[in-house]
């Protein structure tokens, strides 16, 4: 039996009919067409599906859509504003933190949460903050560089 829920995604309210077993990831990708959030494993083990629910990072493949009824969700599609890249996005592009780009959306949201809660993280804290996000391409070096550049307010 489908249930009607309300999701505020990137500030926009959506009424969606979801079945009880549907995950937030499925609803974002399939019902709302927001395919920027990626499915790398569907088992909560890669972080590609990371979104922020009420400001906190979650693996959206592990979250049932019904459980986020009424909550606010931030996805990669909401990170840039009015066609302007978020400083983290800009830094990822500039520092070469993106290769295939499949981990990038989740990585950026994990980084956003970090900097909002710990504006001046150490290198170790940056690494720990993205430990749940697997990147096979970059070896993490440039991702860490990009996040610390933003934290240190480097001119991008």
């Amino acid at each position: 039996m489908k249930r009607l829920i309300n999701l505020v995604v990137n500030g926009e309210s959506h009424e969606v009919a979801v079945s009880p077993e549907q995950t937030l990831l499925e609803v974002l990708r399939e019902e709302l067409g927001l395919t920027g959030t990626k499915k790398g494993c569907n088992q909560g083990e890669c972080g590609a599906c990371t979104v922020l629910v009420d400001g906190k990072p979650v693996s959206s493949c592990l979250v049932l859509a019904v459980s986020v009824n009424g909550k606010s969700v931030s996805t990669i599609e909401g990170l840039s504003q009015d066609g302007r890249l978020h400083p983290l996005q800009e830094a990822f592009v500039k520092y070469g933190a993106i290769q295939c780009g499949f981990c990038t959306p989740g990585m950026l949201l994990a980084a956003k949460y970090l900097l909002e809660n710990r504006p001046k993280p150490s290198e170790q804290e940056i690494k720990e903050a993205i430990n749940g996000n697997i990147c096979r391409c970059t070896g993490y070096v440039k991702i860490v560089e990009a996040i610390s550049a933003v934290a240190q307010g480097a001119a991008l």
Partner: peptide, 12 residues
């Protein structure tokens, strides 16, 4: 910077 960077950074 790579030319596919912005597209990938924005989820597009």
């Amino acid at each position: 910077p790579r030319i596919d960077g912005p597209e990938k950074a924005t989820g597009r």
